[in-house]
Amino acid sequence: MLLPEESAAPPGHVLLGRYAERSAQGGPSGLGRRRGLGDGQRRAPAPGAAATGSAPTESLTTHRRASDAPRHFATTVPRPSAVNSSGEDTAPRRWGPTYADTSATMGIWNSLSDPKLTLAGLKAASAENPIVKSLAQPRRTGGDDSIPAGGPSAPTQATQLSSAPDVDGNDFPGRQGHDVARPTENIQLAASTRNPDYAARMLGYDRNTFGDMIHDLKHFFKLSPSDNLVFDDNGDVSFQGSVLGNIHDFAP
């Protein structure tokens, strides 16, 4: 995979997905330092260059490096027509952050070259970045790509960005926001039964042993043979709505 700092930077290319992807792999700040960054080989940004650089698609795909391109991302990118004078992106965009957000992200990315930068400073600098905050939002479940009413929201952006494959076609299972199997949240499945045979299987006892255990429990708790008990999957035994004891206490 070609690294951004090794790429030529012809103006006019902004790869939001790529940087969002890198942000998704980062640490607490949301920005990850990849191989080659911070090794002292970067060049100082060109005087007067804005911190709005981009990675060129052409160089990424051909692995061809332009000799005069700065290795740093401090390149000048023409403002898209949809961006107003205050830096706000007014174009309707189905996914991703605004132009201003991207510029701020690139500024943070470039700041990694500062040897004086501390981790705390990096966190502070990136804490207010919308992209970083959006990636910290919980992932949406399901495969619905529909945009909620009112426009793209932060969680939607996080899902869109972090689920996108790398521009090199690489996918990273298990990365933040990727559709990996995870336990369903906010749902608790309570298992209980009145059937002793089912309870024996649920709790891992053979039928004869479990019957003996039930008899002992009834003996200790003054229950009659005809009393129907409810067995929970943790072994708790209820009678008439109240927990009496735990059947595991009577295991051999």
Partner: peptide, 24 residues
């Protein structure tokens, strides 16, 4: 062979202490 005081945990036949106190 068995002895339970109401409201106190007791020793079950397997020798364990009960999770819940005696009902009676």
């Amino acid at each position: 062979d068995i002895s339970v005081v109401k409201g106190e945990r007791f020793k079950t036949p397997s020798g364990r202490m009960s999770t819940y106190p005696g009902r009676t």
